[in-house]
Design a protein around this nucleic acid. Structure first.
Lengths: 336, 336
DNA sequence: CTGTTAGCGCTTTCAC
DNA sequence: GTGAAAGCGCTAACAG
């Protein structure tokens, strides 16, 4: 059962070098030889030892996938798409999560554990500090960022500002003037992070519409349901004149809807809510949102990464489209 | 930057064998030597090449995680928990997804790709055929099944029958008599699969209560929202006398709630709905459910697998508790 | 407690 | 188009 390349070579009556070439589809092997070797290999149930192959070739056929979570809509879908694309090219996905804690620092991304272990790195929505990016770059393998990444790197993402403007403008067109924004973590202030970009998009849409943007309209929801629920409860209690809330993610928008329900506010009659994502379960509450295709971003990013690994070139920034999906959580501003 | 064990050995003034021992914390190394070697290694930024180490030792410090999806609540949470536990022991998680298609066969689990690549395998909610299990066992590494697994294997799971009975009995106590069940895929009929067990639990609870279980009460929801929504739409249209639906997962229960809404039925006034899982977003619609802790099952399974890899022994079956969470989608049977 | 040495199972020149 | 042989960078006996 546990055959090595020598067994195949012996049975096929060729050298191990030829077996290696034949099985990997390299040129300079006679078609007849190739077919014969493959037949023998499959009959013997042979497949090369990944460690031995990696050690000898320096390539691992493995991609490191770095992500803060997997149990969040965006991350799960990106990773699922990426894994599918990688597998289609016979690459493995090595999963590394880095839990983000509210306000606190997360475990540093340690490049050492990825050394000689992966041929490329996919960073999924992880707001890396500049020095972490530098460390990763030091690994000397291609890196693709999905959802969030520093300028100068290969990025697959949305036009976050535009998405935020789209959401905000939708609310403004409905007549809302006191529109709050639920953003992520207070520590997440890298200028290129989606949270920051969405914040900027909201602010500029407000300002252009001649609406003031006082500090109290901006609160932190930590990109999850409970975080947004808590913070929105406080917000809506302290500022009952707020008629609409734009959350930077659908999960946070769901938290806002729950908060409204907790407070006995009707959505959208008393307060309108919009998010960003196009979460599968938004439908449950008729959540209005600016939708994106997360799985496809994962596929694209993985495909690009494989191109890079193969020595190809890919566009620096790939911007995915978004579309406004109007459902039932947004409506006209209440008359009071 | 790319130092090898020889560099460390030379700088530290010892042999490579000593470096290897010191860095891995093996016995028979003088404490002073150990500290010195570690200091030199960290100063040089050295870490062993995983391929070389694997090739020489036969161990990979990697666990293969097999799962049908990652963007489903149960799977995402189990995998997240497992990854966390593995990382805590410096093990890597290699992700392999095997998409399940409605009614159709999925890609066969191919043991060859895992050969000499992993020290253990975690099978998450994947209903493997007997021959696939046999193939995996042939890899000669420990395997732990989470959520669903054949008898005779190491399992971490719920008492699925009990969970189903709990859900069904809750509805019966509320006075319901025509209680439908939304199960998974028609092809998923392995006697030990959670779908099958839950089906049996529902049936026996019905029978014990003296309620008939005609075929039309059992429909397939494919374990996802759209599948259950479609099938429940048909079900509730054709059989308006059904007053309650027990879905084998929360995601399917959500589909049923959506179907009810599509049909203008009020939940729970016209139809009660209950699921199994304790999905984070069940709160959104006040979903009544029989809750389980998926992440913790992932942690436990990974921990057990690491024990097995280390040569330890673990219990054959670990059964996690469930608890009935009554919210707003179940209520008294309507009076007509 | 530490060093020497022989592999681990492939890939990759370099000849032929 | 094919083979011989030299590594790839470690670990694991085995000595000492």
């Amino acid at each position: 059962m546990a055959h090595g390349i020598e067994d195949v070579a012996r049975v096929a009556g060729v050298s191990t070098a030829t077996v290696s070439r034949a099985l990997r589809g390299l040129p300079n092997v006679a078609p007849a030889t190739r077919d014969h070797v493959r037949e023998v290999a499959s009959r013997l149930g042979y497949s090369a030892s990944p460690s031995a192959a990696s050690l000898a070739s320096g390539r691992t056929r493995t991609i490191g996938v770095l992500s803060p979570w997997i149990s969040h809509w965006f991350f799960a879908n990106v990773i699922e798409g990426a894994e599918r694309a990688l597998r289609a090219s016979d690459f493995d996905a090595l999963l590394h999560t880095f839990e983000l804690f509210r306000g606190g620092p997360r475990r540093r991304v340690d490049p050492v554990v990825l050394r000689r272990r992966v041929d490329g790195i996919l960073v999924v929505g992880l707001p890396l500090a500049a020095d972490e990016v530098a460390d990763l770059s030091g690994l000397d393998v291609p890196i693709v960022f999905v959802g969030s990444g520093p300028p100068g790197q290969i990025l697959v993402r949305l036009d976050d500002r535009l998405a935020a403007r789209t959401a905000t403008e939708h609310l403004i067109e409905l007549g809302h003037r006191r529109i709050a924004h639920v953003t992520g973590d207070p520590g997440d202030v890298l200028p290129w992070s989606p949270a920051e970009e969405r914040l900027v998009g909201w602010r500029s849409a407000m300002t252009e519409a001649g609406l003031p943007v006082p500090d109290e309209l901006e609160v932190h929801g930590y990109f999850d349901v409970p975080g947004a629920r808590e913070t929105a409860t406080r917000l809506l209690t302290q500022h009952p004149d707020i008629t609409a809330v734009f959350a930077a993610s659908d999960e946070m928008a769901m938290g806002v809807v729950l908060a409204a329900a907790d407070l006995g506010l009707r959505v959208p009659q008393d307060v309108s809510v919009i998010g960003i994502d196009g979460h599968d379960l938004g439908d449950l509450i008729g959540l209005t949102t600016v939708a994106q295709d997360a799985a496809e971003q994962g596929v694209r990013a993985a495909t690009m990464l494989l191109d890079l690994v193969a020595g190809g070139v890919v566009p620096q920034v790939t911007t995915f489209p978004t579309r406004l999906v109007i459902r039932r959580t947004t409506g006209a501003v209440p008359v009071r």
